[in-house]
């Protein structure tokens, strides 16, 4: 399977990445190789194997609905590049 340049541009956009023409070419080639590598698993015969819905074999790992006090706000915000009124301040976002 090959990944074309159009798909790379689309993926880059979804990932908020800005790629140069050379990078697009390179990633198209790299991603094709990665997918080809991963596709090897398709050759395994799974007829006798039950369908799994998660990679992890655990299930029902739950927590009780009991409050643990939240963290101090100053600590949480200490690495924020910009803050105001106890909130993260970020460049204006349009609706």
């Amino acid at each position: 399977m090959s990944v074309n340049k159009k798909e790379i541009v689309h993926l880059a956009k979804l990932s908020n990445l800005y790629l140069s023409e050379e990078e697009i070419e390179k990633y198209a080639k790299d991603l094709t190789e990665i997918i080809d590598f991963a596709s090897m698993i398709n050759s395994v015969n799974t007829d006798e194997i039950n369908e799994t819905i998660a990679a992890n074999e655990n299930f029902n790992v739950f927590r009780k609905d009991q409050v643990i006090p939240s963290m101090d706000r100053n600590l949480l915000l200490q690495n924020a590049p910009s803050q105001d009124d106890g909130m993260f301040r970020i460049p204006k976002v349009l609706n």
């Binding site: 790992v61 739950f62 927590r63 009991q66 706000r73 949480l76 909130m87 993260f88």
Partner: peptide, 29 residues
């Protein structure tokens, strides 16, 4: 395990999981 009370002061019902700090893991309620 952060509380869910409506109308609290901004970012006072948060923890590293709410804030997506690296290495944090969710556990379902």
């Amino acid at each position: 395990s952060c509380p869910t009370t409506f109308g609290a002061e901004p970012n006072t019902q948060c923890c590293p999981i709410c804030m997506a700090m690296p290495g944090t893991l969710p556990v379902l309620n």
